[in-house]
Amino acid sequence: MSTGTQNVFQANGSGPVEYRRVYVWELPVRFYHWINAVALVLLIVTGYLIGAPIRAFYAAEAYQQYWFGWVRFIHFASAFVYVFNFAARIYWGFVGNKYAAWNNFFPITPKQRQEIVDVVKVDVLQVKMHGEISTGHNSLAAFVYFFTFLAFVAQSITGFALYSSMSNSFLPRMFTWIVPLMGGEMGVRHWHHLLMWFFVAFIIVHIYLSFYHDYIEGRGTISSMVGGWKFDRVKSAAEAAETEAKRNWGPGIKWRPAVKGHHKKPTFREPM
């Protein structure tokens, strides 16, 4: 490792390390998360089965079983749960705490954009060892969630469009117009199926990174989605001063660690 790497923890001296408990994920957010998780898994499993069904196990005549019917029923039922759950989450983005707020998901401020760069360096490419650890969503994760929300919307629309031919209810019927737009139901089916794989990839990365952060940071990332609490390190006076310097965004940008290859002049951003 580069010897120039700053060790913020050592800077704390030899006293006990203090952590502050922060209530990050409120109950509705946790409910949303787990309902969404269960619905998504059900949707992916049944959706895949709808695309490539397994033959009923023992029946010889159709009246003896309703196996594929149940697979489809579970898919449609979870789809409705998933859509309304998502709608509830959007609502909570306007009334919930700051960690749940809608503006987390769009990199609007320079700070958010800088955090994205930082997370890529620290956690994805690991060219930098320590970065500021955000308490709620980090900006990169939040921005990725924004894309999953887009995928939610696309999947709901294509799903309802496919379902509309079997339904008289208002919600699916609203999306009938999608079908000719996508070149018939084969086209809709195609994209609906392909997007399913986006969720598979997302779930793999999402679960991995939750464990990764829990492992690297040791402040309850995994359990936070059950109890809602995360743990923030209480900073020493020296660290607080360093954080303050970082907030200034000025030319004296000392917080950038002197990692090898960082002799290039940093680009500066205006504060918001």
């Binding site: 695309g51 690991q126 060892m129 794989w197 598979v200 990365v205 990764y212 690297i216």
Partner: peptide, 30 residues
């Protein structure tokens, strides 16, 4: 779409596994 999806899924798994290994090497100090 399933062929494409399987490739994406396996690539993601491989990427994540590689990242886990790299993390333990590069971030052992952290």
């Amino acid at each position: 779409a399933d062929t494409i999806g399987t490739v994406v899924g396996v690539a993601t798994l491989a990427g994540v596994a590689a990242h886990a290994v790299v993390t333990n090497i590069r971030k052992h100090r952290v």
